[in-house]
Design a protein around this nucleic acid. Structure first.
Length: 432
RNA sequence: GGCCCCAUCGUCUAGUGGUCUAGGACACUAGGUUCUCAUCCUAGAAACCAGGGUUCGAGUCCCUGUGGGGUCACCA
C-alpha cells in the first residue's frame, strides 16, 4: 500500500509550491488503481511562525484545485493521527529519549542533539538516481528543541515512520536534509521510505519562488480569474510531460499517466504566460451556461445571471481570464454609461441625427441582430463613410472603448433606449 | 566558501548512440478571415553551455571546466 504525504507549515497562506508538491504526491498515490493514500500533515512546530487561518487557507487552496486528501487534521484521527505535529509532542519526546538511552543522542542546553555517526549517506532517488553525501557533512543536530517541539528533520522522520509513509515526494530543497533523516532511520533501525525530489519552481531570476516578490498565494490566482483546472494543468507541465505531447489534459489523465520517468530534474521557471493561454483554452472548453455561472460567481453575483448569460457568447473567445469579462463587457453590465470616445475623423457623419433616427424607427419588437445589421448598414451607406470607421465610432460611443465584442450583438443586448441615449450623448458631447 | 543538484529555442518541453539538416507548445513576427479585439488558419524566426575523451557514429555515455540553483539554524 502506497502512502504519501505533504507536510506544509501553517505559516501564512496556501503556497503554489505546496500545490505543486501536493499534485505530484496525489498523482503518484492515485496512479496505481487509485489505492494509495494521500495524507496531509501540518508541521506546526515553529510556534512563533504559526499563523491563525493559515491551516484553513491550505485546506481551501488544495480543495479548490481538486486535490483531496485521505487523512489529515480535519478528518477522523484514525490509527495514524493526530496529524498536527503540535499534538504529537509526547511521541517525539519518547522517541528522542530512546536515542538518549541508547547514547545516540545527548542533552545540550535543554535541547536534545543527535550524535552524528559520520557514515556516508546514499540513496536512490526516484527522480535523480543515486545521490550520496560524504559522512562528514552531517554534524550533530538538534532533534528536540528546548521548548519541547521537534525540529523539522526529527518530526518528519518520526511521523513518516509512524504514519507508515512509503514514498517521500518533496522539493529539491530537501535534498540536503535527507542525509540527516537517513541517519535517524538508521539509528532507529527502520527502513527508510523511497525518496523523490521534485524540481523547485523558480522565478524569472531563476531563484526559488519567494513569498515576497512572486505571485505564490493560491488565492491570488483565483482572484485574477484563473480556473483551478487550468492551474493544475499548467503545474503538471512544469517538470512533467505528457507521453503523447499533449498540452491540455485534466487531473484524471495526469494521474492515470503519471510516472517518475517523465519527471525532469531541472527546475522550471514559473512563467504564467503559458498559464494565460491554458486558462483561455479551458474557458473556451466550458459551455456557455457553466461559464456564465463562473463569471457570475467571480463577480460576486453583482449582476443578474441572465444578463451575464446573454453576454457570454460574445466574450468567451475573447478572454483568457474571468477578470477580462469586465474589461470587455463592462459597458453592458454597468449602470453608469461609459465616457464616449470619438475615434475617427468622420465622427459627425457616423453618429448623426440620421443614424439615430434610423435606429429609432426600428421598433423594440424587432430589435435584434439581423435587423440591426440591416439598419446599421443603411445608416452607414447614408453616411457615406468607411464601414470600419462607421462601426468604430458606434463602438467608441456606446462602449467608451476601441476594443469590444461585435457591435450589433452588443447593441442588441444594450437595448434600444440605452443605445440611443448613448448615441445622443456622444453626438452632443462631440459637437461641443 | 564546503557539500549537493542541475544544464536542448525567450519560456515549458520531446529526445534514452545512427530515423536530429533537433520535434511540439506558449510567447513573438508576417499573412489570411473580420466592423475593433479575439478565436481560427497559414508561414517564419528561434536551442543541444564549452573543451576533451569513448565510439564507425554523440543532443544522447564518461571526464574537466563554465554557468545556474539549493543547502549549510533550537525555520520548515
Amino acid at each position: 500500500m502506497i502512502r504519501v504525504r505533504i507536510a506544509p507549515s501553517p505559516t501564512g497562506f496556501a503556497h503554489v509550491g505546496t500545490a505543486y508538491t501536493a499534485l505530484f504526491n496525489y498523482a503518484f498515490a492515485k496512479n496505481k488503481k487509485n489505492e494509495g493514500k494521500f495524507i496531509l500533515r501540518l508541521e506546526d512546530t515553529d510556534v512563533k511562525r504559526n499563523v491563525k487561518g493559515a491551516e484553513e487557507a491550505i485546506y481551501e487552496g488544495l480543495s479548490w484545485l481538486g486535490l483531496s486528501w485521505d487523512e489529515g487534521p480535519d478528518k477522523d484521527k484514525g490509527e495514524y493521527g493526530p496529524y498536527r505535529q503540535s499534538e504529537r509532542l509526547k511521541t517525539y519526546r519518547e522517541w528522542a529519549e530512546r536515542l538518549l538511552k541508547e547514547k545516540k543522542a545527548y542533552e545540550d542546553e535543554g535541547a536534545i542533539r543527535f550524535k552524528n555517526t559520520g557514515k556516508d549517506m546514499v540513496w536512490d532517488d526516484l527522480i535523480r538516481g543515486k545521490i550520496s553525501f560524504p559522512g562528514g557533512e552531517v554534524t550533530d543536530f538538534v532533534i528536540l528543541k528546548s521548548d519541547g517541539y521537534p525540529t523539522y528533520n526529527f518530526g518528519a522522520v518520526i511521523d513518516d515512520i509512524l504514519m507508515e509513509i512509503t514514498h517521500v515526494i518533496r522539493g529539491e530543497e530537501h535534498i540536503s536534509n535527507t542525509p540527516r533523516q537517513l541517519a535517524l532511520y538508521t539509528a532507529f533501525a527502520k527502513a527508510h521510505p523511497k525518496f523523490a525530489h521534485l524540481p523547485t519552481l523558480r522565478n524569472k531570476d531563476r531563484k526559488k519562488l519567494s513569498k515576497r516578490r512572486d505571485p505564490v498565494d493560491l488565492r491570488v490566482f483565483r482572484e485574477k480569474g484563473y480556473l483551478p483546472e487550468a492551474l493544475v494543468n499548467f503545474l503538471c507541465l512544469l517538470g512533467w510531460s505528457h507521453p503523447q505531447g499533449k498540452e491540455i489534459f485534466d487531473l484524471e489523465e495526469f494521474v492515470r499517466l503519471f510516472d517518475f520517468k517523465r519527471v525532469r530534474s531541472a527546475g522550471p521557471i514559473f512563467d504564467t504566460t503559458k498559464l494565460d493561454w491554458i486558462n483561455g483554452e479551458y474557458i473556451r472548453k466550458t459551455n456557455n451556461d457553466s461559464l456564465a455561472k463562473l463569471v457570475w460567481e467571480y463577480a460576486e453575483r453583482k449582476y443578474p445571471l441572465e444578463k451575464v448569460e446573454e453576454i457570454i457568447p460574445l466574450v468567451r473567445e475573447r478572454m483568457n481570464k474571468l477578470s477580462e469579462f469586465f474589461t470587455l463587457a463592462g459597458f453592458l453590465v454597468e449602470e453608469k454609461p461609459p465616457k464616449p470616445l470619438f475615434l475617427t475623423d468622420s465622427y459627425s457623419a457616423n453618429i448623426s441625427g440620421a443614424t439615430i433616427s434610423k435606429l429609432n424607427n426600428l421598433p423594440e419588437s424587432r430589435w435584434n441582430k439581423q435587423n440591426l445589421d440591416k439598419v446599421l448598414g443603411e445608416a452607414n451607406r447614408m453616411a457615406g463613410t468607411a464601414t470600419g470607421d462607421f462601426f468604430m465610432d458606434i463602438r467608441g460611443t456606446i462602449a467608451g472603448s476601441s476594443v469590444t465584442p461585435p457591435i450589433t450583438e452588443s447593441i442588441e443586448i444594450l437595448g434600444k433606449k440605452e443605445t440611443i441615449d448613448r448615441l445622443k450623448t456622444g453626438q452632443k458631447k462631440f459637437s461641443k
